[in-house]
């Protein structure tokens, strides 16, 4: 089992290296010449471009540049950027063309906001989704079940940005039921402000994602309740509550864990619409901003960090599997 996890970790690192190479290749060979980013169109003589390239180290061989790029993972670097030398502290994934700061730290500063949105939203949609899914599964075929399934389908049919936008316009701007949204540090600004600013985003994420989780966990639970071993549990004379919780739920949770791992990783990479609509300065907005400005180091760093989240989520899911299912653990 231990060997299995270590193997997965190594595989994860390999995936990240592959991603970093791809990112680097796009940076280096992609359609956007990095040097052009520094060069206002009017004054871009070829001579100046070459200077810039030399300055940025773009004229050196690719492998050398790649090694230098990756060295930022183990030590701090000094980076020449547009004529000035910038300190890029460890871990360094390059310096933003636009802001002239370490892209990693730029993104990292925004991580608490993104993480708060993601974690709160996940808690909301897990609770709403799992409970309504399990409730529906146990009452399969009844009105309650049908109501839950059709509500979930209905909500699912509404585009998320529309739902979030309407909620913002009516509940915050219009009725003022919620305070103005945004991220406030729970440590500096206090927990009330923190929760107040994020309550509506959490709720929206909760509602939007929970539809999928309700149907998914309903399906998993229906399957689990039909399993032979659940029938055995009933045949033993266990209380229905015990049958459902200890026997069916434990099995139904397995497929839910899988999709949750990935969903959460995607959320951590930034919830673009949520951040945009509710005015939260998170990683998603930073990524969007970087794309709009062709800020190549920022895009690279953003891609790498997102990939890292997904790799880690996969490993965590695997570990969870082995906790839940002894057949995996003892294999």
């Amino acid at each position: 089992m231990f060997g299995y996890i270590v193997r997965r970790l190594i595989a994860g690192v390999l995936v990240l290296i592959a991603v970093s190479m791809m990112v680097f290749a796009i940076f280096f060979y992609g359609p956007n010449d990095p040097a052009l980013a520094y060069c206002p169109e009017s004054r871009c003589t070829p001579q100046r471009l070459d200077n810039l390239r030399h300055n940025l180290g773009l004229d050196r061989p690719a492998p050398q540049q790649y090694v230098e790029y990756m060295s930022g993972l183990v030590k701090s670097r000094h980076i020449e950027s547009g004529g000035i030398s910038i300190d890029c502290n460890w871990p360094c994934l390059g310096v933003s063309f636009k802001y002239r700061v370490s892209v990693f730290h730029y993104l990292w500063d925004r991580f608490p906001a993104t993480f708060s949105v993601a974690a709160g939203g996940a808690i909301c949609f897990l609770i709403i989704g799992l409970f309504s899914g399990i409730f529906a599964a146990r009452r399969r075929g009844t009105m309650a079940d049908k109501a839950i399934v059709s509500t979930s389908l209905f909500i699912n049919a509404i585009p998320y940005y529309l739902l979030a936008l309407l909620a913002y316009l009516y509940l915050v701007q219009g009725l003022g039921l919620f305070p103005e949204t945004g991220y406030h540090s729970p440590f500096k600004d206090g927990p009330f402000k923190f929760v107040g600013g994020l309550a509506l985003p959490w709720l929206m994420l909760g509602i939007a994602y929970s539809t999928q989780y309700a149907r998914f966990s309903r399906g998993a639970m229906v399957d689990a309740l039909n399993e032979d071993y659940v029938r055995t549990a009933r045949a033993k004379g266990l209380m229905e509550r015990v049958v459902v919780r200890r026997h069916a739920l434990r099995a139904a949770i397995v497929p839910v864990v899988t999709i949750f791992g990935l969903d959460f990783a995607y959320l951590l990479a930034g919830t673009l619409f949520t951040e945009k609509i509710f005015g939260i300065q998170g990683m998603g907005l930073a990524g969007l901003d970087a794309v709009q400005r062709t800020d190549l180091p920022m895009i690279s760093a953003y891609t790498l960090i997102s990939a890292a989240f997904i790799v880690v989520a996969n490993i965590v899911v695997d570990i969870l599997y082995s906790v839940i299912d002894p057949r995996v653990r003892l294999a």
């Binding site: 089992m1 060997g3 299995y4 270590v6 193997r7 294999a331």
Partner: peptide
């Protein structure tokens, strides 16, 4: 004969 290999569960399989 048909032998199916059995892999170890250690770090290197």
């Amino acid at each position: 004969k048909k032998y199916f290999p059995v892999k170890s569960s250690g770090l290197i399989r």
